[in-house]
Design a protein around this nucleic acid. Structure first.
Lengths: 341, 341
DNA sequence: AATAGCGTTGCAAATGTTTTCATCGCGGTT
DNA sequence: AACCGCGATGAAAACATTTGCAACGCTATT
């Protein structure tokens, strides 16, 4: 009842044993006889003892935390990944140390340092673009790390994710196959976002190969924010020289595009086809349902979590892991052949 | 370059000072003279030293972590709260220890214990319903805590949030004011979710007071999942005896309702009005835009973070804080007077 | 000239736990 | 009867850091 916080020696005193025995009950219960174990467990309950992971981790023991660094948890972009990563590692008694950097790679370095200060046992971060400082820090630390979300054949870090270039190609191909030639692009600033850059480059390459590279005025920039994307798309769709289809950097932008088109009285997909990338939760169930290229966020998160857990249980990090999870085209209600309005 | 991890004594050796001085440079730079400070800082960089928060926190010093316990980070329900909470505390050098329990209050107790094992400096959790064990644990720990999201006049824990009953009343009132009398409800199971329960009870009370308590077949249960909600709503709207309006437990369910109604060819809001609660990101920009009662998630998260930070800087916890943030009706495109189809 | 006071630094104790090593008692072997 | 091995437990060192206390070399005061 007192506000004094019991430590291991208090428990030991209460149970009439040594602190070592209490420690053993907690960590190697097999080493201590049943009667004393019961006595100790009773003492733990009676004193309200809660073990101190900080003191534990001072012995080179695990801190039982894993760091997860994402650009943002806003919107549902990374929500599924965070959740599935968490579920995967929580099973193994790990707790998540979560940090965000808002797409600022210098901030990413700082939060990463903080995670190392807390002696996380492993680290997952998003994507392959990072500061040189960040790479150096990771290399110096000897803590398992995995870059989730994106995949690249020559990634310097172990990576588990989708091939964003392919996602872009699939999106472009879909619209081209439907017969579109007047295709506009709405993507986020991609200088520090390898995922967006890979998608955009691939889309442009595919369109150029098909002989319909979009003019500059059809290459718009919008952040990952539905309302702002809506405003950008309104401008894009305002003129009379209008594209017949839009490829959006992700589903959040695509929702903004749908809103803008509807507000302008453009029928979807009759007068305008819209293509997202990501397949975020809800995208299948909006009206009209969004055509998109699915990035398997849940599988990526779960797989990344599992990978770290494996590394930490002496799993085989033979060579650096690079795992590509497939993207998948979902034809839904926002795409159709052009000009059937 | 070696994989040896420098500790404070290595830095001290490199700088030609004692470990105590290094510690002082890090924690009380004012106490050490400029020349030695520079020498030490150079040594820190040279050795790649990263301080060890675990060892630090053993001295009763802060762990610089705050625990945040949410039901889930899936969907965008709590995403804004997590993000704004994080932003608020990151400014003060705190890192987030995130745990989820999937609306299982026994699991909540377990993750809370884990957070205490890590010696978090403060804890935020969602809502006011918790196991008796959880309340006991919190009371015994002498760590500042705040219940975010929901507000209640007699909350045993400090709370910062919205009055969910009022949110329910506002939603019901809006539809009643529009002239609806045939109103159906789609809510999640509310036995362990005080927010949903408060909303549902208030809605039912308001409808009963207006003489149009919904029959049991119009009180549907759906989890917070658009697809599943869609299925539930399809059944609800299938019969010929159809409500003229729907109140949904939150916006995720409402999106499912919109999808179900559209799939059945019901015009919104002509043939069916739909009301959400929450105002999640994107709700304003779907088509049609969702009428909803906004819960100020960002403000709640930021305020909760700020409150903990204040408690930890000797702020004034004079009496237990109970702060109510206002809900707000957003009339948008999914509600209209009945029967104008 | 002796000393008081001050700023800077080092020493060593303390923090809570794990783990190695040693001890102890006990049943079974030779 | 002496001994060996074994299971269970305790004593103490180790982990990386912080901090109270003491000591040191100065300057300024009496």
């Amino acid at each position: 009842m007192t506000s004094y916080r019991a430590d291991i020696t208090a428990v030991a005193r209460a149970a009439g044993v040594s602190p070592a025995t209490v420690s053993r009950v907690l960590n190697h219960p097999g080493l201590v006889s049943a009667p004393t174990r019961n006595r100790v467990e009773a003492a733990i309950r009676a004193t309200g003892y809660i073990r101190n992971r900080a003191a534990q981790s001072m012995h080179g023991r695990r801190s039982a935390t894993l760091g997860l660094v994402v650009p943002t948890v806003d919107y549902s972009i990374f929500a599924e990944l965070v959740q599935s990563f968490n579920d995967a590692v929580a099973e193994h008694e790990f707790t998540l140390l979560l940090a965000t950097h808002g797409y600022d790679l210098a901030a990413e370095y700082r939060v990463l340092r903080k995670l190392y200060e807390h002696r996380v046992d492993g680290i997952a971060l998003i994507g392959l673009d990072h500061d040189a400082d960040t790479f150096r820090l990771i290399a110096s630390q000897d803590v398992p790390v995995v870059a989730a979300w994106a995949w690249a054949a020559e990634s310097p870090l172990p990576c588990i994710g989708a091939d964003n270039a392919e996602a872009g190609r699939v999106a472009a191909r879909h619209l081209l196959d439907l017969g579109h030639r007047r295709i506009a692009l709405v993507f986020p600033p991609s200088d520090k976002n390898d995922r967006a850059r890979a998608r955009l480059d691939a889309v442009q390459a595919a369109l150029a190969a098909a002989g319909c590279a979009p003019p500059a005025r059809w290459c718009a920039r919008a952040p990952y924010d539905t309302s702002q994307a809506k405003a950008v798309c309104r401008d894009l769709l305002a003129g009379r020289d209008r594209p017949s289809a839009l490829i959006c950097g992700n589903d959040v932008i695509a929702q903004g595009a749908i809103a803008a088109a509807t507000a302008q009285g453009l029928a979807i997909p009759g007068a305008l086809s819209i293509m997202g990338i990501g397949d975020f939760p809800g995208s299948a169930d909006t009206v009209p349902a969004l055509s998109t290229v699915a990035i398997p966020a849940r599988r990526i998160g779960a797989r990344a979590g599992r990978h770290l857990v494996e590394c930490l249980s002496g799993g085989p990090p033979a060579g650096i892991l690079r795992e590509r999870l497939p993207v998948e085209l979902h034809r839904r209600g926002t795409t159709a052949p052009p000009g059937i309005a």
